[in-house]
């Protein structure tokens, strides 16, 4: 239970950063923190204490042994790669915004838009 709550506090710190920061780079970093907390939450739910990692050499190893759930691990593997892709997309847009307006501050940008 403590682990789940700590993981959710990490999520809340990321959400707080998204709401209060005015800098685009800091917003991207906060988004990354939120992503990290969600990945960790899914893996925490799938953990079986005393289980072995889901890599074996033949099926006899599996007898009388617990295995960590491989399904959340697969889903998180997909999600990590997609998070990398979206992050690089956001950072590309951020650098274009900087080239156009000369600042990362969102209030300044909305003022300059006129």
């Amino acid at each position: 239970m403590t682990l789940y709550i700590l993981c959710f506090i990490l999520f809340l710190v990321g959400l707080y950063g998204l709401l209060i920061s005015r800098n685009i780079i800091k917003m991207v970093i906060s988004l990354t923190i939120v992503e990290v907390s969600i990945f960790l939450m899914l893996i925490l739910i799938g953990y079986v204490s005393g289980g072995i990692a889901p890599v074996v050499f033949d099926s006899q190893v599996l007898e009388n042994k617990l295995v960590v759930d491989p399904l959340p691990q697969t889903m998180v593997l997909t999600a990590i790669v997609i998070a990398l892709a979206t992050n690089s997309m956001i950072l590309t847009m951020a650098i274009r915004i900087y080239k156009k307006y000369g600042t990362f501050d969102i209030h300044e940008i909305s003022k300059l838009k006129g």
Partner: peptide
């Protein structure tokens, strides 16, 4: 620590 070596490599 959570026995997910593939994820550790990718991350």
């Amino acid at each position: 620590l959570l026995k997910a070596p593939d994820l550790a490599i990718v991350q």
